[in-house]
Nucleic acid binder design. Structure first.
Ligand SMILES: NC(=O)c1ccc[n+]([C@@H]2O[C@H](COP(=O)([O-])OP(=O)(O)OC[C@H]3O[C@@H](n4cnc5c(N)ncnc54)[C@H](O)[C@@H]3O)[C@@H](O)[C@H]2O)c1
Ligand SMILES: NC(=O)c1ccc[n+]([C@@H]2O[C@H](COP(=O)([O-])OP(=O)(O)OC[C@H]3O[C@@H](n4cnc5c(N)ncnc54)[C@H](O)[C@@H]3O)[C@@H](O)[C@H]2O)c1
Lengths: 230, 230
DNA sequence: AGGCACTCGTGCACACGTTCACAAAGCCAG
DNA sequence: CTGGCTTTGTGAACGTGTGCACGAGTGCCT
């Protein structure tokens, strides 16, 4: 669209924080806040103010010195940068415990990721309705992806079936995958995969608990020194 | 226990990969594999072999040059380092869509994180049984945490209630929190918080999709050049 | 109009993480 | 016992991310 801008590459760390800023800015906008400083935003996001400024500077110079950032405009710019100016329909593979929770979760569509379809390999699941969407057979996946122009797939099958699910998604034309199965997926280089692994998160917490117990017990629970943490 | 060793601090990046190695090693052990090289493990984990060696070197020198690592022994060492030598009961706050999926998910207890209890503020939910556990009222949280010696809490309430849930968990004595609500929790410094945010993950994928579309269309789907990605 | 208070944008130094490259160490064959 | 092959463990170079510090704009008040 614009003549020249656009070949900036935004650091991964920044990309992962932009959605957080975006949500906070949206909340602020709802509360009628029109302008916010990097310090204010940093406080709400639980990060350093300099980091906020540097992150936002990758989008361009959209702040006003001495004043701060105009909330509505910043929301617009972040949304544009994240590609949230239009919806991204997603397809969910696996209609078990997790697939049902995801399908029944409204916040999905609200945030621009409507569920274009849910598929399962189990005929017993096919035909049931979850969150307003009927479960279809996995053989219909290519058709769903094609007709609904789906780019993002969600893998919510058991680990043993996750690679198969990913293969089918890729073959159907999906280019980004969100994987909930505790498995390292093997996909073509061009496909973007992100993994959400419950067990890993819990084990990281376990590590810190164990370490806490092992160290000297100067665990003086400082009950009010609060710190925001992402 | 041992006299001196133990005041090594393991880098965060390494801690977050150890659970992945652990799962893979477990699978290998089940298949009867007794020994594995850093290269083999790296392949399965989708990372660089040097990284595997450096990660494992933080645990000590448990490999044998010219041979590799003994799978069973390595499993033992990683489990010990992660504090997985005993169970860590968890308590889930919020018995909605997500809380139900978590409770109904067996892989939780299997991996050493049995569900010690689920609580909700809604009387309509209290008393129902999920995955073998009866939902109890949130006022019983302190008692559950105390009697079951729970250190880890899971927040699965709507965003608006997440801070309240976290406050109650902290007050009850929990020291680690896994937060599924799209909210930055404010907790005492001593409390470890990890966040799993669906919307953030999807928006990161969206960013890459958008970028893909914006760039020159040399998206020559190289259909076989496969790469494992965590 | 001038000065002042405020906040952005960014150069720089430092910390952390990744990858390469190679010596040291172990195994095995002859 | 020696030589050759394999694979670890780690120093060093490089890349990425973080946070400070401060110059440079901007708005407001007098
Ligand atoms: N439920 C949770 O809270 C939870 C938490 C963390 C991780 N996970 C992970 O999420 C995944 C799903 O968990 P779940 O509890 O929903 O499991 P589930 O067994 O309840 O559901 C899995 C569904 O996938 C379907 N399926 C199996 N093979 C398939 C295939 N090849 N193609 C399409 N569909 C297929 C099954 O028919 C079933 O309906 C698992 O990998 C699990 O480890 C789940
Ligand atoms: N369902 C999903 O797939 C999904 C996906 C991503 C994120 N999330 C997030 O997970 C959280 C839960 O989602 P959900 O779909 O289960 O919501 P839900 O509305 O189905 O369930 C929330 C539950 O929390 C209970 N609750 C409310 N306030 C409480 C309080 N103060 N103390 C204790 N319990 C309280 C409610 O009674 C309800 O049972 C939300 O923050 C949501 O954004 C859910």
């Amino acid at each position: 669209m614009a003549p020249d801008r656009n070949r900036r590459r935004i650091p991964d760390a920044t990309v992962s924080r932009l959605p957080v800023y975006l949500r906070i800015l949206g909340e602020q906008a709802d509360e009628g806040v029109e302008s916010i400083s990097s310090e204010g935003l940093a406080e709400l996001a639980g990060v350093n103010a300099a980091k906020v400024r540097k992150d936002l500077s990758y989008l361009g110079s959209y702040g006003t010195r001495g004043v701060g950032y105009e909330v509505a405009y910043l929301v617009y710019q972040i949304r544009r940068e994240l590609g949230l100016t239009h919806d991204w329909p997603v397809v969910i593979v696996g209609a078990g415990n997790l697939g049902q929770a995801l399908a029944g979760y409204g916040g999905f569509g609200e945030r621009g990721f409507p569920v274009a379809g849910i598929v399962d390999i189990d005929d017993a699941k096919v035909g049931t309705v979850l969150g307003g969407t009927r479960v279809r057979h996995i053989d219909e996946l290519p058709q769903i992806v094609a007709t609904r122009r789906v780019n993002i797939g969600v893998v919510a099958t058991p680990g043993a079936a996750a690679q198969d699910a990913a293969d089918r998604l890729v073959k159907a034309g999906v280019t980004s995958i969100l994987n909930f199965a505790p498995v390292v997926l093997s996909v073509p280089r061009a496909i973007e995969v992100r993994k959400v692994d419950l067990a890993v998160e819990l084990q990281i917490l376990s590590y810190h608990e164990q370490r806490r117990a092992g160290g000297a017990i100067h665990a003086v629970q400082n009950g009010n020194g609060r710190s925001a943490s992402a």
